[in-house]
Simulated assay, not measured.
Amino acid sequence: MRNFGKIALFVAVVGLVVIAVTVSGPRLGLSEPIVGFGLYRSYLNPLGAAIAVLGVLAVVVHAKRKERAGIAAGAVATVIGLACLAPLMASTLNPPRRGAPINDITTDTVNPPAFEVIDETRAGARNSLDYGGAEVAAVQAAAYPDIAALETDLSPDEAYERALEVAGDMGWEIVAADAERRRFEATARTSVFYFADDVVVVVTAQEGGSQLDMRGVSRVGRSDQGVNAARILAFQEQFNQ
């Protein structure tokens, strides 16, 4: 038991490495985003609890023997375990708002922009690009009433170029761009787990300026947890800066 603290600390470090690989695996191409997310959701809390318990036991054992090095190692392991449990504690104290059960958000629910280049063969896709119609539109209106087309005083060509610039600044991968028709399709990814969402942007001429419509569709998941709506609003805000 003399090395109990070192053992606890070693287990904690290994646990951190496992978590890091799980989270970064999709970005590094080691796993699909949904796999990394599933592993994280299933095993983070049990792993954190095990590390924390092991750390506390190490502290108790070495405290009885007055072994400072062992106490310190056990304490560090305990902190690592509690850090792993932090998301669980935070969500327990402040439960997150449940996302609307849709994964397709658009600024035009009557005539949503269509994907012409990105299709059903996109990697890892489980959701269709076909719009769900009135039912999806009703859910969106209730959950995200602030989603609407962006109107600007810029000319259509200027608005199109500005939209492409913003997409690039936000790190989107432009898949296809048609300057003549002022539309482009892109893939945007979440910072954590690297989930892919496909986006189409269309600029149309309006009296005194132009209008910009967008649509974002997640490749997996019944709900996108509000990611596409937040991305559209962030895009529009940055566009106007």
Results as ranks from 00 to 15, higher is better:
7 I>A: 13
7 I>D: 06
8 A>N: 00
9 L>E: 06
9 L>Q: 08
14 V>N: 05
14 V>A: 15
14 V>M: 15
15 G>Q: 09
17 V>L: 15
19 I>K: 12
23 V>F: 10
24 S>M: 15
25 G>F: 04
25 G>S: 07
32 E>C: 07
33 P>K: 03
35 V>K: 06
35 V>Y: 10
36 G>Y: 03
37 F>T: 04
39 L>V: 13
40 Y>E: 01
41 R>F: 07
41 R>P: 00
45 N>I: 13
47 L>F: 12
48 G>M: 04
49 A>W: 10
50 A>K: 00
52 A>T: 06
55 G>D: 00
55 G>T: 05
59 V>D: 12
62 H>M: 14
63 A>R: 15
64 K>Y: 13
65 R>L: 15
67 E>H: 15
71 I>Y: 11
72 A>Y: 04
75 A>R: 10
75 A>S: 14
78 T>W: 08
81 G>S: 02
82 L>C: 12
83 A>F: 15
89 M>E: 03
90 A>Q: 06
92 T>I: 10
93 L>M: 14
94 N>F: 14
97 R>M: 13
99 G>Y: 00
99 G>Q: 01
101 P>H: 06
101 P>V: 05
103 N>Y: 14
103 N>G: 11
104 D>I: 08
105 I>S: 10
106 T>Y: 07
112 P>L: 11
113 P>F: 01
113 P>V: 01
114 A>V: 15
116 E>M: 14
123 A>T: 12
123 A>M: 10
126 R>L: 10
126 R>I: 04
126 R>S: 07
128 S>G: 03
129 L>I: 03
130 D>H: 08
132 G>S: 06
132 G>W: 05
132 G>Q: 05
135 E>C: 02
136 V>Y: 04
138 A>Y: 02
140 Q>Y: 09
148 A>Q: 11
149 A>P: 00
150 L>T: 00
150 L>P: 00
151 E>L: 11
153 D>N: 04
154 L>D: 11
154 L>W: 04
155 S>W: 01
157 D>N: 14
163 A>Q: 01
163 A>Y: 02
167 A>P: 00
170 M>V: 01
172 W>C: 07
172 W>E: 06
174 I>M: 11
174 I>Q: 09
175 V>W: 10
177 A>M: 12
178 D>E: 06
180 E>P: 02
181 R>Y: 09
182 R>P: 01
183 R>D: 05
186 A>C: 02
187 T>H: 02
189 R>F: 01
189 R>Q: 03
189 R>C: 00
195 F>A: 00
197 D>K: 08
198 D>A: 07
201 V>I: 14
202 V>C: 09
202 V>E: 08
202 V>S: 07
207 E>T: 13
210 S>W: 11
211 Q>P: 00
213 D>T: 12
214 M>S: 11
214 M>A: 13
215 R>W: 01
218 S>N: 04
220 V>A: 06
221 G>Q: 03
224 D>R: 04
231 R>S: 00
232 I>T: 06
233 L>W: 01
235 F>N: 05
237 E>N: 11
